Computed example of a mutant assay.
Amino acid sequence: MRTTMRSAMPGTAAVLALTAAALAAAVLTPTHAGAAGPPRLRGCGPGELCLWEKAEFKGQRHTYELAGTDIESCVALPEGDSAAALANRTGRPVTTYQSAECDETAEFNTYPGNGTWAPESPYRVRAFKIWER
Rank of each mutant, 00 (worst) to 15 (best):
M1D: 07
R2Q: 12
T3I: 14
T3W: 13
T4Y: 14
T4V: 09
M5H: 02
R6D: 00
A8I: 00
A8D: 04
A8R: 03
A8M: 10
M9F: 15
M9W: 06
P10W: 02
P10D: 04
G11Q: 05
G11A: 08
A13Y: 01
V15Y: 08
V15M: 13
L16K: 01
A17V: 06
A17T: 11
T19W: 09
T19N: 03
A20N: 06
A21S: 13
A22H: 03
A26M: 07
A26H: 08
A26V: 05
V27M: 07
V27N: 03
V27T: 04
L28I: 03
T29C: 11
T29G: 02
T29F: 08
T29Y: 11
P30L: 02
P30M: 07
H32A: 10
H32G: 07
G34I: 05
A36E: 11
A36P: 06
A36M: 06
A36F: 13
G37D: 14
P38W: 01
P39W: 10
R42Y: 05
R42P: 07
G43R: 12
P46N: 12
G47E: 11
E48K: 11
E48C: 03
L49N: 05
L49Q: 09
C50H: 12
C50F: 10
C50E: 11
L51D: 07
L51G: 09
W52M: 07
E56S: 15
E56T: 13
E56Q: 13
F57I: 07
K58S: 14
K58D: 12
K58A: 15
G59L: 06
G59W: 07
G59A: 11
Q60N: 08
Q60Y: 07
R61Q: 13
R61H: 02
R61K: 15
R61L: 12
H62Y: 04
T63Q: 10
E65R: 14
L66K: 13
L66P: 09
G68T: 14
D70K: 12
D70L: 04
D70Q: 10
D70H: 08
I71C: 01
I71D: 03
I71L: 14
I71A: 07
C74F: 06
L77N: 11
G80Y: 00
D81T: 03
D81I: 01
S82F: 03
S82C: 05
A83S: 15
A85L: 11
A85Q: 02
A87R: 01
N88W: 02
N88T: 04
R89H: 14
T90H: 03
R92G: 00
R92P: 00
R92W: 11
R92K: 10
P93E: 08
V94F: 06
V94N: 04
T96F: 11
A100F: 00
E101F: 12
E101R: 14
E101D: 14
T105N: 08
E107N: 09
T110C: 01
Y111T: 01
P112C: 05
G113V: 14
N114T: 08
N114E: 08
T116D: 07
T116C: 03
W117C: 04
A118R: 12
A118G: 00
P119R: 15
S121L: 15
R124P: 00
R124G: 00
R124D: 00
R126L: 00
R126I: 00
F128A: 10
F128C: 08
R133P: 02
